[in-house]
Design a protein around this nucleic acid. Structure first.
Lengths: 357, 357
DNA sequence: TTGAAAGCGGTACCAT
DNA sequence: ATGGTACCGCTTTCAA
């Protein structure tokens, strides 16, 4: 069969014996229309399988009710979780989600342009790789931009992040109190705000308390890079006795290398702490101690903020920081005698398969 | 600053001193326009920051160049991988991707309608939960529908799947040849074609070769359900010595339960085989033997097929089956003396952290 | 090659 | 409450 043309409002109007305007009203909640007319239209629409054309509607209303979402590297389980929550959140508010995955580097630009061509009502950038100049440009072009799990150097772009700084500090304190003395830090993407803040928190606390800076490697937030970095770190004569990994995804890579290539036991020979508290890191096999970035609250904040920005474009920039906590599992040696203030900030989660879902 | 209006083709035309039609042509590859005019328009467009409005374009051309993609349950690492590849594949062909995650059950309908309102050029359903009647309806409404990793009962809807039947059979042969005698099968979603086919292959081979049917549990393709199913299965007095799990995601759940709750060693006390060959299942900790569903080939086939369906709506239904192979790692006891035909179908992959990426 | 003009399928304002 | 009508921003004939 040929691609049969969709029924239009005019078709419905003809069948229902009303004007095309009436059809439009019948599908506009709160429009002034007689109940009887509405029913007649509804019936005609049903017969014809009519659905208002969102494209035509958007052309006149100048609001697409589409939100562009940029993501990259879904291997890190944090992002699929975010995507799922985001999809439901936006859907619930009547928005559609146009997903795109920018290529690394400058090639992202044409892709972004394609998305902008759809006159998206807003842009959510959950991609570490997309340059922040791009964000600024969009912002300047008058479209609301929201950075997710990152910030821009220019503080003019709104953002939703976790407590990167506090997380980094707390982990430093936790590890030092736990008796570790040769610390390591595995950075993510070096010029990402997220990795920088976590590192600043971690090293800041160490410095303030008179400890040596940690050994340092870069894992680019990727599994394979993190594995390679772990090999370098663990092969050193002064191998660290604890590593703070920039996220859980890298931490699992380090755990794999440590156990299966170096024969190390965790946490006996090596303590590991991650960031995010997502995915396989919660499974008993890894039982990773990790500073959490709670997906649902972060997404809720994002959806609320983005809707606000759309409704009030003049609203001031906001930087939401969603509270996290240090979730203590089994991958890092515990402080035996903790200071109280530290203990109060920890959450103890024994490994249970059920909780892994 | 107020949400400044985007420049339109008319604005550009005025500045360039040409007609609005000329502007349109300047942005239409292959349109008949003088090179000099094109340049003048390009310059004016640049000055004004003009980008053709995709919404207006779609309204007249009646092609949106948007493809609706339904996914559900991104916890299973297979799907994020698919999404990433799909995004790049569609992008490369000039399509945008409108992603939605149908709620389980009937509530999916209004969401689908929203997507259809955008007059998507095609629909890719990679969601196990979306009912196949919905697929039929869309198909009947004249929009190309492609089922990914599933089929519909009515064979009129095109699909791309892995070798579910052959995979199931091969795994049965592999396990029996490996000396296992008390087999278990962990089903996914019971009325999904994928789970049914894998089970049919598995049980079919067993029956044909005079073996008892396996013990059976249902894991709904979910981590927590699979964990619960594993507990039931492993607590039995006649506990299976090998379990074929409907996918890798469930297999990792079973491995966790088996090791950490039942103290079983894999594969000494229990052999495990999965399906998909993705994600954490490839990590040394799991080193899962699994029948592969190669993401890139499956996505390539999907993109090619969907484009074909768009260009030629009259094209006949097609059911692409992408070849997979039994990837042998360490989670299942190997046949000591294999029959040659079986051995030829196996691929041996020792656990290496590098390969896990 | 170019410009004028007729839609595409709606929304919203205007009288009635 | 209803119908008529002027757009929304573009593509695509049709003449010139």
């Amino acid at each position: 069969m040929s691609p049969k043309r969709h029924a239009t409002a005019t078709d419905v109007a003809r069948l229902a014996g009303v004007s095309q305007s009436a059809v439009s009203r019948a599908f506009t909640p709160g429009a002034s229309i007689a109940e009887e007319t509405r029913l007649r239209v509804a019936e005609a629409a049903r017969q014809l399988g009519y659905r208002p054309n969102a494209i035509a509607r958007s052309l006149t209303t100048r609001r697409s009710r589409i939100i562009g979402v940029a993501a990259s590297y879904l291997q890190n389980h944090f992002y699929p979780d975010v995507l799922e929550a985001l999809s439901r959140g936006l859907q619930a508010r009547g928005y559609q989600m146009l997903l795109f995955m920018p290529d690394a580097g400058r090639h992202a630009d044409p892709q972004l342009q394609e998305v902008l061509a759809w006159r998206v009502d807003a842009l959510i950038l959950a991609s570490t790789t997309l340059s922040s100049e791009l964000a600024d440009q969009c912002q300047a072009a008058g479209i609301p931009v929201l950075l997710f799990n990152r910030t821009s150097r220019a503080p003019s772009v709104s953002s939703v992040t976790g407590e990167n700084l506090r997380g980094g500090r707390l982990i430093a304190e936790f590890l030092v109190t736990g008796g570790h003395r040769r610390l390591g830090f595995l950075a993510g993407i070096e010029n990402s705000s997220t990795s920088r803040d976590r590192e600043r928190g971690f090293c800041g606390w160490l410095e303030e308390h008179g400890h040596r800076p940690p050994l340092r490697e870069v894992g680019l937030y990727r599994f394979d890079e993190a594995s390679a970095a772990a090999r370098r770190l663990l092969a050193r004569p002064d191998r660290p006795d604890a590593i703070f990994c920039g996220n859980d995804h890298m931490a699992t890579a380090v755990a794999e290398v440590a156990r299966h290539e170096f024969g190390l036991r965790i946490p006996r020979d090596l303590s590991l702490v991650g960031f995010d508290d997502t995915g396989p890191a919660r499974w008993p096999s890894f039982s990773l101690t990790s500073f959490s970035q709670p997906v649902q609250p972060m997404v809720d904040a994002t959806v609320a903020l983005v809707c606000e920005m759309i409704e009030n474009p003049a609203a001031p920039t906001r930087h939401e920081v969603v509270r996290g906590e240090l979730v203590v599992r089994g991958s890092a040696r515990m402080p035996t005698e903790g200071c109280v203030s530290l203990a109060e900030q920890l959450v103890w989660r024994p490994a249970v398969v059920d909780a892994a879902g």
